[in-house]
Design a protein around this nucleic acid. Structure first.
Length: 516
DNA sequence: ATCCAGAGAG
DNA sequence: CTCTCTGGAT
């Protein structure tokens, strides 16, 4: 009789999706059985055991109904045919191992009863299906959640230079540096920076070059410039005292909705919850929040959730704990739910779907754009190009045709639906003197396809042969063969080529005719 | 909402 | 190279 391991959802990605694994040999002890399992699936080992080979604190093992904690741990004897259950620390749930579309029978519900320091196992019959929904922690559960996370953070927090100060200037500096770079990279930069610029005054009065030199290697130099600009504003407007309220902080360049609450909570203990990418991911998993998180309404909802979870007693630690959890445990890929201090409060973990949250942004559906372009050609083969559009304040840039086609020199272009000739004529009528317009003859050249990000553009070029080029305000005259003497986009080049080919095929036909 | 800048993954 | 991600700005 083989020994069977039951694998939790959180580990299945390491077992080729299997939820049970049979060990054919007859292991004498749990340690032997685990060795056999880990040999088959080595990555399971990392999640279950420390490097020293100890079972991680948040992993529970059951042989049948017995928690191995009380049957001798790794030395527990294994009988032939034993069923061994690997259970992540989940409490307060009722064996919720199913979600929509994942009909798995629920085997266990575990309630962690702290008073008795023991675990109770409940066998459930049938299937439990939980809806995919948002949950809000409150009351006793919320208090417990806060305590667990803060305890974890205070125990495991890394000793980082900016965690040894309450100086808002230094907190701010670290936040700006950390926005863009890993902790390990930031440390030496941070230390050099505060040594040279120990306070906001020294930063404000430094030559910009020196600031950039100390920043050099971190990238995002615009943020270094903003940093100094903000320091100067702090000195001039606030007498060198770092503003301690949200509005004034947000008014400083480079400080936005993330940085302001971070500085205020950590340096001043203000009760403001931060929401960055890490925190958002944690929240999405805790509350099983589907959809793309950056969508404005959803992001707002996440901010509210963050606000409600914030521990009012220690907002700074709380915010850092949430971010640290996201950075070190609740990571984007394969979250370590098995060793997460708050797994028991996490719907995503309970449903075994934490790793598939948050959802990716849906690809922007491609928008089909149909345009018609006018390619004038005079007797000498010269054409007309319009200048790059000025800033369009009143018109959405995306809808503005020349901008769609690129903000460079371009042929007169109009959006069309239906009769493109008529549309182009009417628009040209506004540009070109009336008497000339009536005589314009439009020859359709080959259609052009062009793709820019999510836009699929089809252009119908019309060649318009004229004796003299019309006068159009701002337009520039160039030889059609050499439109590239002005800065043009690839699309404009394609249009020019199509217009040239069209005319050559026309003249070829004429030649063919004349030979007869 | 959308754009931008810059970095990093693939 | 392209695609994706992030926080700020508008």
């Amino acid at each position: 009789m083989p020994v069977t391991f039951h694998i939790p959802g959180t580990l299945r990605e390491f077992t080729d999706g299997r939820n049970t694994i049979e060990i054919e040999q007859s292991p004498a002890t749990l340690a032997d059985a685990l060795s056999a399992l880990w040999k088959l699936y080595p990555r399971v080992r990392d999640r279950m055991a420390t490097e020293q080979g100890q079972i991680r604190e948040h992993v529970n093992l059951f042989i049948g109904d017995e928690n191995v904690r009380y049957t001798g741990g790794l030395a527990s004897p294994i009988a032939a045919g034993s069923e061994i259950w690997i259970i992540p620390a989940i409490s307060g749930g009722w064996g919720v191992t199913s979600g929509p579309g994942r009909e798995r029978p629920a085997k266990f519900g575990i309630v962690d009863s702290r008073e008795k320091e023991s675990l109770f196992v409940f066998r459930l019959t049938g299937t439990v299906v939980r809806e995919f929904r948002r949950t809000m922690l409150k009351g006793h559960e919320l208090a417990e959640f806060r305590e667990q996370l803060l305890d974890w953070f205070r125990q495991f927090r890394r000793d980082l230079p900016w965690r040894r100060t309450k100086d808002p200037y230094r907190i701010w500096l670290s936040e700006i540096m950390l926005q863009q770079t890993r902790v390990a990279v930031v440390i030496p930069y941070y230390e050099r920076f505060v040594e040279r610029f120990p306070n906001v005054q020294s930063l404000a009065t430094a030559p910009e070059n020196e600031v950039l030199r100390l920043w050099s290697g971190l990238g995002y130099y615009g943020r270094a410039r903003n940093l100094q600009k903000a320091a100067q504003q702090v000195v001039v407007r606030h007498g060198g005292n770092f503003p301690a309220n949200l509005e004034e902080l947000l008014a400083l360049p480079g400080i936005g909705n993330y940085t302001a609450p971070a500085v205020l909570s950590i340096a001043f203990g203000e009760k403001l919850a931060v929401l960055d990418g890490n925190v958002a991911r944690v929240l999405a998993r805790i509350g099983t929040i589907g959809g793309y998180l950056r969508e404005s309404q959803r992001w707002q909802g996440l901010q509210e959730m963050a606000n409600s979870l914030l521990d009012p007693e220690s907002p700074g630690d709380w915010n850092q704990a949430m971010m640290e959890l996201g950075a070190t445990r609740c990571t984007p890929k394969s979250p370590q739910c098995l060793i997460c201090p708050v797994a028991q409060f996490c719907e995503g973990c309970k449903l075994g779907i934490a790793g598939s949250l948050p959802e990716k942004r849906k690809k922007h559906a491609t928008v089909e754009i149909h345009l018609a372009a006018a390619v004038f050609a005079d007797e000498n083969g010269w054409t007309l190009l319009l200048p790059p559009p000025e800033d369009q304040n009143n018109e959405s840039l995306a809808d503005y045709v020349p901008a769609t086609v690129s903000r460079l020199w371009h042929f007169p272009t109009v959006p069309v639906s239906g009769d493109s000739v008529a549309k182009l004529r009417s628009v040209l009528g506004e540009l070109v003197a009336k008497k000339q317009n009536g005589n314009l003859r439009l020859f359709a050249a080959g259609k052009i396809r062009h793709t820019v990000t999510y836009r699929a553009i089809t252009v119908q070029p019309y060649r318009i042969n004229t004796k003299k080029l019309p006068r159009i305000k701002g337009a520039e005259r160039v030889p059609l063969q050499e439109v590239t003497v002005l800065p043009v986009s690839n699309l404009t080049r394609k249009i020019a080529r199509a217009a040239l080919e069209a005319v050559s095929s026309v003249s070829q036909k004429r030649r063919e005719l004349s030979f007869r």
